[in-house]
Amino acid sequence: MGKAGTVLKQVLDTYRISQNKLAVAMGIGRSSINRWVNENRDPSGDAILQIRKGLNKINSAAAEEFIRLYLDESEEDELVDQE
C-alpha cells in the first residue's frame, strides 16, 4: 500500500488526534480512517485533500505536517539512489 496511511497514522499519533475525531471533522465513517491507517486501502487523491481539510479543522499544524510528510520524496530518492 501507499505512503498516505503511514503518514496519517504518524500525524494522528504525534498530535494525539483520534481516528474518530478526524472522521467527524471529515464527515465520514471511522472505518474509512481505520482502513487508511492500517494500510488496508489507500485514500484517493480527493480523500488526501479531505484529510488535510479535516486535520486543519482540528489542528492546522497537523494538516501542514501531513502534507509535508506525504509530499516528502527524500525516502523515495534514497531508494532510487541505492539501485
Rank of each mutant, 00 (worst) to 15 (best):
E76G: 04
K3H: 09
R35K: 11
D81Q: 15
M26R: 03
S31C: 07
N34P: 01
N59T: 08
A62G: 04
V7D: 05
G2V: 02
S32G: 09
N38Y: 06
V7Q: 10
S44R: 03
R68L: 10
S44I: 00
V24S: 01
R30Y: 06
K57V: 02
I58T: 02
S31K: 11
S60A: 11
T14N: 10
S32N: 11
E65P: 07
A62E: 00
A63I: 00
E78N: 09
A4F: 04
Q10S: 13
A23W: 02
K3T: 03
D13Q: 10
S60G: 06
I28S: 05
G2N: 08
L69P: 01
G45W: 08
R68S: 07
I28H: 06
F66E: 01
M1F: 12
A47M: 11
K57R: 14
K53R: 13
I28K: 08
N56R: 10
I17D: 00
D81N: 14
K9A: 04
N59K: 14
A61G: 11
M26W: 03
N56Q: 08
T6R: 12
Y15W: 13
I48W: 07
A61W: 10
D77H: 10
Q19Y: 02
R41Y: 12
I33T: 04
E65C: 15
V37T: 03
A62P: 03
S32E: 07
A47T: 00
D42E: 12
E75P: 01
Q10F: 12
R68C: 04
N59A: 14
S18R: 11
N20V: 15
S60D: 05
I33D: 00
I51N: 12
A25W: 00
S74Q: 12
E64A: 11
E76N: 07
S31R: 10
S60M: 08
E65K: 13
E73D: 13
D72V: 01
D42A: 08
D46C: 05
D77W: 11
I33N: 01
G27D: 04
I58A: 13
A62V: 01
